[in-house]
């Protein structure tokens, strides 16, 4: 695909902007920013990936994964509304997820130790983990507020923070895993996932593409679970003060 043919697809953006103008949605500026950002970021990452793949250095690959993890943790921390602290709790949860999941794939020789495999698959694991973090933190706060009478009752009976928050942490963990499970259920029926689509367009055998897609589906299911569990362990104490009083 040439840059010229690609630029034709800007017609879609123009169409969306016209709708926005016509309906007075006021989104034109956001759309413009989004288009420019997506273009610049993707072109940039394209060149970076080309360079990293060409060099084939594992340290460089690890550094890229680390940067991804940091950006994801920073983003997830913003969504935590203070519950997770600014950065390090989501970082630990996402990093643990990436290390465990990716480590398993590499140790089991499921994927070859090559940047062109590690980086895209890490991107999917880390991205999914980031979404799970945001969902978990939002739900933990909402569940705790909705069930605060129950939590206070347990505290009044002498429950420690872990005992008092067990039910709400469990509910938040469940809630943060449901989207992943639901999308796995309809996979292939409702949408052809991006990675598979990409491989097929790039000329790969659909059967081979499906195998990789399944690997991703399984990996992100595990990563949603690992993320919620690690984040749950790190954040539940922050629901309480030192006298075991509920703060949320």
């Amino acid at each position: 695909m040439s840059l010229w043919t690609l630029s034709l697809t800007l017609a879609f953006v123009v169409a969306a902007m016209l709708v926005s103008l016509w309906q007075r949605l006021g989104l034109e500026k956001d759309m413009l920013v989004a288009t420019v950002r997506a273009t610049v970021q993707l072109l940039l990452i394209g060149y970076i990936l080309k360079f990293v793949f060409h060099v084939g250095n594992l340290a460089l690959t690890a550094a890229m994964v680390a940067v991804m993890t940091c950006v994801a943790a920073d983003n997830a921390g913003r969504r935590g509304r203070g519950l997770a602290g600014r950065f390090w709790r989501p970082f630990v949860a996402i990093a643990a997820t990436e290390v465990l999941t990716q480590g398993f794939l590499l140790a089991g020789h499921v994927i070859p130790v090559r940047p062109s495999y590690i980086i895209p698959i890490s991107g999917m694991i880390v991205g999914n983990s980031m979404v799970a973090c945001g969902l978990f933190l939002n739900r933990l706060r909402d569940e705790t507020q909705a069930r605060s009478a129950e939590v206070w009752t347990l505290l009044a009976l002498g429950a420690n923070p872990k005992q008092a928050s067990r039910a709400v942490v469990k509910a938040a963990t469940k809630a943060s895993m449901i989207p992943t499970i639901d999308s796995a259920k309809t996979m292939g029926l409702v949408q052809l996932p991006g990675m598979m689509t990409g491989q097929i367009i790039a000329g790969a055998d659909p059967i081979q593409a499906v195998r990789y897609q399944l690997l991703i589906v399984f990996a992100i299911m595990a990563s949603a679970a690992i993320t919620s569990i690690v984040l749950g362990l790190l954040t539940y104490p922050r629901l309480f003060n030192r006298f075991w009083q509920l703060l949320v």
Binding site: A149, E150, W152, T153, L154, L155, A156, L157, G158, A159, N160, A167, F243, W244
Partner: peptide
């Protein structure tokens, strides 16, 4: 704290039942 709250019981104005049966509730403490 666990000991203080075990020995000083509080009956709240609005009783809050925890999930499960009456027997489950009585087993919580």
């Amino acid at each position: 704290l666990a000991e203080l709250r075990r020995r000083v019981g509080l009956v709240m104005q609005q009783p809050v039942m925890l999930p499960g049966t009456v027997a489950d509730n009585l087993a919580v403490p």
